[in-house]
Design a protein around this nucleic acid. Structure first.
Lengths: 161, 161
DNA sequence: CGAATTAATACGCTTCTGCTTATCATCTAC
DNA sequence: GTAGATGATAAGCAGAAGCGTATTAATTCG
């Protein structure tokens, strides 16, 4: 019988690997998001771009690519499509006309908010399955750990022992 | 300023999407696992197969593929390599000689245990960053949610409201 | 002004993955 | 035993992603 007993005390030696669990959960969460995004005419990458641009307007596309962990040459098509749909502005920076200033249009804000709200509703329904205390701990832990950089988790060089 | 304040009461409206967080965390965890696996001469798929076979010997390769969410025709190469390295047995089922009985060799067990132990050490170091209560809730919630099927998370048909 | 640099973009290459089809051996049912 | 189903395997194809290079426009430095 697999390892699904979190209540066996302090030694949770029978749990699956963390990565195995986050992979499985992530797969489910993404599967739940995709249809919602499709309803809003967004791809996952498009949605990620809208989220990134909403937090703070970005000066260069390269910065955006790095911020969302995508390839420089890969987001161009995504930006093209978002721009065609009128969800983002991509204007040349008057100060440095090589760069393109990226920002959300009012429409972009609207679509982003609507998509995210729908996603949140689904997530809350899922989280409601957890008992209150577990839920709070899960969220807090997830927020804390997901905010760590990859180097932080792998153990940055200099911490080799 | 981003959303890193889990202590703001019951309305955690400023947190990132769950999928965004699990994606980021998963990326870090996988990045932390890969070098450990490489030290043991394992690929991620190879490791996943060893884990799956350890829990319960499998009768058919198709069952294994489904169990680990891989493609039927894709795991063959993985099995070939594991077999070449003497980590798994792949014998014809005497009862149904079409099928191949899969099991770990003693060596396979050893490699699996060693790799998993190393991975666990890294994970524990990571989890140690969380306060005790958060850590327990995080683990319990992750275990519970990751055990759900994709259909469960997306909202299976019949639950359309 | 001319050289080196940088942002955006296009192109091509390679890998991984998902999916489909075909083949062969074997089993089950009739 | 002959037909149809099933398991393992190979091979092929399309899509997505990472990566490197080349090109063009625009900036900065000397």
């Amino acid at each position: 019988m697999p390892s699904l007993d979190p209540t066996n005390g302090q030694h949770e030696r029978t749990r699956p690997d963390l990565a195995a669990m986050t992979t499985a959960l992530n797969r489910s969460l993404v599967a739940a998001e995709l249809p919602v995004l499709a309803e809003h005419g967004l791809t996952m990458w498009g949605y990620v771009v809208l989220l990134a641009l909403d937090e703070h307007p970005l000066r260069t596309q390269a910065a955006l690519a790095e911020a969302i962990g995508a390839d420089k040459t890969r987001i161009i098509g995504v930006l093209d499509e978002l721009q065609d749909r009128g969800l983002i502005n991509r204007q040349r920076d008057p100060a440095d006309r090589r760069a393109r200033l990226l920002s959300l249009t009012p429409d972009g804000h609207r679509v982003r908010d609507s998509a995210q709200a729908a996603i949140r509703r689904g997530e809350e329904r899922l989280l409601a399955r957890l008992p209150e205390r577990q839920r709070a701990g899960f969220l807090a832990g997830l927020i804390a750990l997901s905010a760590l950089s990859v180097e932080d988790v792998t153990g940055r060089p200099g911490d080799a022992r």
